[in-house]
Design a protein around this nucleic acid. Structure first.
Length: 694
DNA sequence: ACGGCTTTCACA
DNA sequence: TTGTGAAAG
């Protein structure tokens, strides 16, 4: 369920950038002869021509839609070019698209705060960039405005006039405009620039929406596709939302939206306005109720998170219908066939092994898993492991949790469809370990189900389980290498990846991320390819946990900042231990991602350390204990977490720090100021007739 | 006997 | 904390 966030400011400049039929573009870049042709990307060509997952705009004209089968698409558009998704290990392999997505992100992240929302979408907070532009080079002093900006759609501006571009130019350059409109104009210029840069460097086109919040930006980016951008001035918001179909709003495309339609008779966002906040809250809960009330008024406080990398990696596959994987019965069959093939055929169907059979190493039925399940589990784990390794190599991030999802049904009762508990455990690196753990998780789930099965169907043991989908996911990913950016640069000289003076870095890393209980392992240098040697592909039992953090937004007032390693040392002199927080990790992510980004963007990221979120720790956690888990699984309690009250930092001290560090510390302080002026119920609300005053 | 495969988020 | 379900692309 969506949740309301207090609005920080209603004068933010937010952009949503959406790649046009992204997978198609990726394939067309690979095969330029496909450019301009009706094209679709399809996976699993074997059954009915495979399923379409992306459709070019040329093909859409023929009525080709995502979710059609290849055969259907051919029917409505015989000349359509169907390109298959690459296959690896017997399953779709989306890596090339992920990589292409990263290319785009690395460009879009150059201006302002950037959040990777999906493989082909990002949000940008361009408030600072727009403010800067407005004060230094406002649109009206520009002698020329680039073509792409002039092609912008400005909602509320009559698009039927003949010289549209001149009209847009006038709108952009109005000197009597509202401050926020001027900022939007700057936003439009910046986004147009970014989009051109994306096209130039990646050959991909994208569309964008520029507005005062995420919801409106997202809405706008979809209004004019492909390769166009749309601006949402404040004055157009009410008119836009009034007739906007409720189901097309993000978050309302599913059951919640249907409920709004069917139970409240609300079909457009405008129709939501008649319901009081209380009414919405009582029906949909406090959070969702307020969220809905806000949405109706064009208010959306969600902030752009500075995050360029995914929070989890998953690898999964489904086995629909007849391809569902067999378990139990067939396992016994196979096993017995191998060990005692003279037995009657009926025997294998028995779940309980007959006496005298040499199946001693199968003490528990749950350990009998179909070789199919085991096979696919292994394939999925292999892919996952590979991606985890890349993430470690390229971004120095470590995942801490492994989760297995299984869908299965029992052929005996068709109602048991799709029920299987998901299971998770600490993640150990190395393909073999992941495979082993995943199998354990599968067995744990199976066993849990067997318990009830035994009760339900005592006599009837031969009901086979059919697995219809399996996926393995790695989550709780945290960045190691706190401070690759400014701090590292400070210690290292100019090049953060140089290994010239690695001594201080070793210290930082060891102090922050104990790689092994013994502490004997360490990075020997920061050279990215070098450091991976410290993680032997199969053997690393990397395990280290960080202090827990709360996601509770309400705790912002605590104003405490858990110190991040090296910086703390500047304040503390000597620092035995300290642990980094979630916030620290996020900013590191911004820095270390994107191998292709050159020095320019790297230093840009560094200067954007003010992207650090506000600290959200609750007081309770201030003296939390950090648990370090050894590879043997014992939990070792260690070290206190260090906290720092940002307000206690004497500003004059900052000036004495090295410039790079100064920048970072100021970054901590800057957002705090803004947060204080946060107000809910923005003036966007003025454009509506509120049913109540807040 | 299907839309596959991901990813994120909120709630219990 | 773990697990579930919704939603999106």
């Amino acid at each position: 369920m969506p949740v309301a966030r207090p609005e920080q400011s209603d004068a933010r400049i937010i952009a949503h950038v959406d790649m046009d039929c992204f997978y198609v573009q990726v394939e067309q870049r690979k095969q330029p002869e496909l450019r301009g042709l009706p094209t679709a990307v399809v996976q699993y060509n074997s059954w009915k021509g495979g399923g379409l997952i992306a459709v070019s705009y040329e093909a859409r004209k023929y009525g080709v839609k995502r979710s059609m089968r290849g055969d259907e698409a051919k029917k409505v558009c015989p000349e359509i070019q169907l390109v298959q998704v690459p296959v690896a290990r017997g399953k779709a392999d989306l890596n090339i698209y992920r990589h292409a997505g990263s290319e785009v992100v690395s460009i879009l992240a150059r201006k302002g705060l950037c959040e990777r929302a999906s493989i082909d979408e990002v949000y940008l907070d361009l408030t600072d960039a727009a403010e800067t532009m407005l004060s230094e080079t406002p649109p009206e002093i520009l002698e020329a405005i680039n073509e792409e900006t002039l092609k912008s759609h400005i909602l509320g501006l009559n698009e039927d006039v003949c010289d549209m571009e001149n009209n847009v130019r006038k709108w952009l350059c109005r000197t009597d405009a509202d401050h926020r409109d001027k900022l939007l104009a700057c936003g439009a210029l910046i986004v147009a620039e970014l989009r051109m840069q994306v096209l130039k460097e990646t050959a991909f086109t994208c569309s964008a929406g520029i507005a005062h919040n995420k919801m409106l930006a997202k809405l706008a980016s979809a209004m004019n596709k492909p390769a166009q951008q749309t601006v949402v001035p404040l004055s157009s918001v009410k008119g836009l939302l009034d007739s906007f179909p409720i189901k097309k709003m993000k978050q309302l495309g599913g059951k919640l939206g249907s409920s709004l339609q069917n139970e409240l008779g609300v079909h457009t966002v405008g129709e939501l306005l008649q319901f009081s906040e209380e009414k919405l809250q009582e029906r949909y809960g406090i959070n969702t109720g307020t969220w809905l009330w806000n949405i109706a008024r064009g208010i959306n406080g969600e902030e752009v998170e500075g995050r360029l990398l995914p929070k989890s990696h998953g690898s999964g596959k489904s086995f629909p219908g007849p391809r569902a994987l067999k378990t139990i019965a067939s396992v016994m069959y196979i096993f017995m066939y191998a060990s005692a093939f003279t037995l009657p055929v009926a025997m294998p169907l028995l779940a309980v092994p007959p006496l005298g059979l040499d199946i001693g190493y199968v003490p528990d039925m749950a350990q009998c898993t179909c070789i199919d399940v085991e096979h696919w589990l292994n394939e999925l784990c292999e892919e996952l492991s590979e991606r985890l390794q890349s993430d470690l190599d390229q971004n120095k991030r470590i995942a801490h949790t492994l989760t297995l999802h299984t869908n299965a049904y029992k052929s005996s009762d068709s109602d048991s469809n799709k029920k299987f508990p998901s299971k998770s455990c600490p993640l150990r690196y190395g393909t073999a370990k992941i495979q082993e753990d995943a199998l354990r998780l599968f067995q744990a789930g199976l066993r849990e189900y067997f318990g009830s099965d035994r009760v339900e169907t005592q006599g009837n043991r031969n009901s086979a389980w059919r697995v219809t989908a399996i996926s393995v996911t790695a989550s709780k990913i945290v960045a190691t290498l706190p401070g690759t950016c400014s701090i590292l640069k400070f210690f290292h000289g100019q090049d953060p990846s140089s290994s010239s003076s690695k001594q201080p870095c070793d210290e930082i890393i060891q102090e922050t991320v104990p790689l092994s209980p013994s502490g004997s392992e360490s990075f020997s240098g920061l050279n990215q390819s070098e450091s991976q040697k410290e993680f032997p592909k199969e053997e690393t039992g990397i395990s280290c946990a960080r202090p827990s953090f709360t996601r509770d937004e309400q705790k912002k007032e605590t104003r405490k900042y858990k110190g991040t390693s090296s910086i703390l040392r500047f304040f503390h002199g000597s620092n035995p231990y300290c642990s980094s927080s979630k916030q620290a990790c996020n900013e590191i992510v911004q820095d270390t991602e994107l191998p292709f980004s050159g020095d320019q963007s790297r230093s840009d990221s560094c200067s954007e350390l003010n992207q650090v979120e506000l600290p959200k720790e609750s007081p309770r956690e201030e003296t939390g204990t950090n648990i370090v888990r050894s590879s043997l699984g014992q939990d070792v309690q260690r070290r206190e977490t260090w906290n720092y009250n940002v307000e206690e930092i004497d500003p004059s001290v900052i000036d004495e720090l090295p410039p790079e560090i100064q920048e970072e510390v100021r970054g901590w302080l800057r957002p705090l100021k803004r947060a204080n002026t946060a107000k809910r119920g923005s003036s966007i609300a003025h454009y509506f007739s509120p049913t109540k005053n807040k």
